[in-house]
Design a protein around this nucleic acid. Structure first.
Lengths: 320, 320
DNA sequence: CCATCTTACGTTACGGGTAACTTAAGCCTT
DNA sequence: AAGGCTTAAGTTACCCGTAACGTAAGATGG
């Protein structure tokens, strides 16, 4: 007991005793068992469960980096869960991670299975839903409005005179942010008298090569396409390279627009038309909101971190 | 007690009782507290501490993905630690994560602080050191021989007739895999009568833009450089784009070689000279070795997952 | 019908840290 | 020197799940 007091520095012991305790700590290589402390209910754990769809997608790796670095400065640890974009994986992971008594959870996406939602409500711990801005979150939410970002891109492309537009992305079991971007995009394009003539949703990962062959498939199916909007920048780069390989000039023969503004854009001579989101900041903000809630500070329920359309030069630069 | 038996399905209860227990589980929304089980010492935890330098570097994101997915199939969770390439961060993280009684640790790199090494030895749990192959690991090791991979690249470039070669990378407090690649590279180049005339180690992250401006600095300092070896592919892409921006023809005016074979290479029309390592497989293998040890299977101490030099077309294609 | 076995369920104790309380020792005051 | 006060250190109980053991009821067999 006295040793416990010394280690926590709460006072009530003599200097002589302190030294003796610290000596024994060194001799025994003693490491406290935090499990016991948390288990006894005297303190909360410093685990934060963090669910991320996948790390092959650079944007999520950046979000996770932002979260973990910020949590680390508060002495908290991320317990990772890669949910592969499925609600079932997420539900299983939530069940497991809750049994470890985490201090809170940060979840990517706003769509959860009914059982998952129940567990989250019952857990009585802070939950931050990230990525998709959610006006009625379980607890807290930080992200952007994906529908709006898709809408803005649709409006931008149609303002340049594009009428026949294609989309290349990937398909998922459930609605997700990319779906919402596509919905916003279609609404804007159709509202401006254009048409999203072909939407390709590949059963693949949203990375470079699917962007490449997806472009081939799209152009084979709809030759009159003037411009392609991609699920993300990686797929758009794949599309750019397909065009280069086939001698299609961008933006003269075809326009290319991505989403997410990957770091590689910083060195490309031709700026990819895209939409910038500060992924690192998103992650940091999520961690800050979590820590704010855990220290009983007032925390906003929803935080919109915003996006910025990047006109770029892979689309024509004015209306025809 | 009977409830505990029902929940673990170990038998010794009647069907009637089972139903009653399950009803109450539903009513109460009961979730077991795994902390108590582990704390009581009846079982090990299912945490695996995973330290990764940073996630901005795509290769580490892939390694982590490989680890976490594989661990997930065994019902284990990763507790993440981003150590930012410093031993002090790693030591602090190890101390914290050990206090949570993890079942094992997976650490990136073979160089740890003395205190960290002590803690790891005393912890009595499996440790897998990844990335750098370590012939005398603390416990287990999986990765590649970075010195050799640098050496092979040096030999390859000199075999093409390159004599004055530059290097662009980043600097770190302590020796790391990139340093070993550079050492192997220099040894091969010098052994073949060439010279690594300038080595630029930037105080920055090993990403695209530092590759871009690092190239500018390098060429300004040493105009006679014929070929540049980069710490990784991201920096090499930055270099490629610098050359494109300045009208330098690759490989006619200058040769460019990276390391790591990033996914974006799959869609580039010009194959980047690089070195392929299966990062995902590395992560999976690390997780498999960990699980093997935890289930008392015989596990090899060291696993070399190998690398493959990619000749590419960003260096001249035969000796002069 | 009693001895023995089996099954179902209950009781006790433990793990490591700490809150709350108790005891012991040292110090001062009158 | 007895009483009151302060400080240091010790004791007890608790957190929750489960191993180990105990017990009661029912089944089986001779």
């Amino acid at each position: 007991m006295t040793a416990s007091r010394v280690l926590r520095g709460e006072g009530g012991y003599s200097e002589k005793t302190r030294v003796k305790v610290m000596e024994q700590v060194d001799v025994l290589g003693y490491l406290p068992n935090r499990l016991a402390t948390v288990f006894a209910g005297d303190q909360n754990s410093t685990f934060i469960g963090v669910s991320i769809p996948d790390l092959g997608n650079e944007v999520f790796a950046q979000v996770l980096e932002g979260i973990d670095r910020k949590l680390g400065t508060f002495g908290y640890q991320s317990v990772l869960g890669l949910t592969q974009h499925t609600q079932q994986e997420e539900e299983n992971w939530i069940r497991t991670v809750l049994s470890w008594q985490p201090a809170g959870l940060i979840l990517t996406g706003r769509y959860h299975s009914p059982r998952a939602t129940d567990m989250l409500r019952n857990a009585g711990i802070p939950v931050v839903e990230i990525w998709d801005l959610n006006s009625s979150p379980l607890d807290m939410s930080v992200g952007i409005n994906h529908f709006d970002s898709g809408f803005d891109m649709g409006r931008y492309l149609t303002s340049l005179g594009y009428q026949n537009i294609g989309y290349v992305g990937t398909s998922h079991d459930t609605a997700n942010a990319a779906t919402e971007r596509l919905n916003g995009f279609c609404k804007a394009v159709e509202g401006a008298g254009g048409a999203v003539v072909k939407q390709l949703c590949l059963h693949d990962t949203a990375t470079y090569y699917p962007g490449f062959y997806g472009t081939e498939q799209l152009l084979a199916a709809a030759r009159d396409i003037e411009c392609i909007f991609y699920q993300n920048d990686a797929m758009a780069f794949g599309g750019l390279q397909y065009c280069a390989a086939k001698g299609l000039s961008v933006p003269d023969d075809i326009g290319i627009a991505g989403w997410g503004d990957l770091p590689i854009a910083s060195v490309m001579n031709r700026r990819l038309t895209s939409c910038h989101v500060s992924h690192l900041k998103l992650g940091q903000k999520a961690a800050e909101m979590m820590m704010g809630r855990l220290t009983d500070e007032p925390v906003p329920t929803c935080t919109d971190i915003g996006f910025r359309l990047i006109p770029g030069s892979t689309v024509r630069n004015s209306g025809v």
